[in-house]
């Protein structure tokens, strides 16, 4: 059906470029917050494991909040809270901060599980062989525990990559926001959504398959 009045322009090759750029922004904010969040989360996980009473009373409930409140609410809250304390953050910075803390909250549990997965006898053996506490962490706990929880970490990372779509509520033009803008202009929702979905799928599916593959191989 050819519209007689053209309010909307069709999907042009230029728009693919626009979407590609937005996809890169999705990738960039995900990579940044996943890496920062993993480092922070590993630290939290170690604190939860070692700090016992003190950490479980203070850190654990705080991390729990980030897991029990919808990410979208966290984003809006932080974005509107930052100016109150005199911080002027753009959507990208606010999004990165919240995604990082959110990742850290999820990774903390994974990391603690990883440390717990390494049995106490093994660690005692390592210490008896003359390894220092940090050497034990670096050369015994990291390879063994890391391997045990690697698949769950991949799950968390992919989850955060998908959840990065929510940063669009702050006005950060990532892939899904870009699609929405294009849909409004071109009125071709199906094609554009399919493209966006295909991008996420192409990113997430191989990685999750690879993680399952590794899990199965290591389980043997």
């Amino acid at each position: 059906m050819e519209p007689t009045l053209k309010f909307f322009s069709g999907f042009a090759p230029n728009d693919l470029w626009f979407m590609g750029e937005a996809a890169l922004r999705t990738l960039w904010i995900s990579v940044l917050s996943i890496s920062l969040g993993t480092v922070l989360g590993t630290l939290f996980g170690w604190m939860l494991y070692e700090g016992r009473r003190a950490a479980t009373l203070t850190l654990a409930p705080v991390l729990d909040v980030f897991r029990s409140v919808p990410l979208i609410i966290q984003l809006v809250l932080f974005y509107n809270f930052a100016p109150i304390v005199g911080l002027n953050l753009d959507p990208f910075a606010s999004g990165t901060v919240i995604l990082t803390v959110y990742t850290a909250a999820l990774v903390a549990n994974v990391a603690r599980g990883g440390i717990e997965a390494v049995g106490a006898p093994m660690r005692r053996a390592a210490r008896s062989l003359g390894l220092s506490y940090w050497q034990d962490l670096r050369h015994v706990v990291l390879p063994i525990g890391g391997r045990a929880v690697f698949p769950s970490w991949v799950g968390v990372a992919l989850g955060v990559m998908k959840d990065s779509a929510l940063v669009s509520v702050l006005g950060y033009v990532e892939l899904l926001k870009a699609s929405q803008i294009l849909i409004t202009r071109t009125q071709e929702p199906f094609l554009i959504l399919a493209l966006a979905g295909a991008f996420y799928f192409a990113l997430s599916y191989p990685v999750s398959r690879y993680a399952t593959h590794l899990e199965n191989r290591w389980a043997q």
Partner: peptide
């Protein structure tokens, strides 16, 4: 369902 964002799925049922 597992490899695309939930928001994408909502948009799909909405606009798609």
């Amino acid at each position: 369902a597992r490899n695309t964002p939930a928001l994408f799925q909502l948009f799909f049922f909405g606009f798609g």
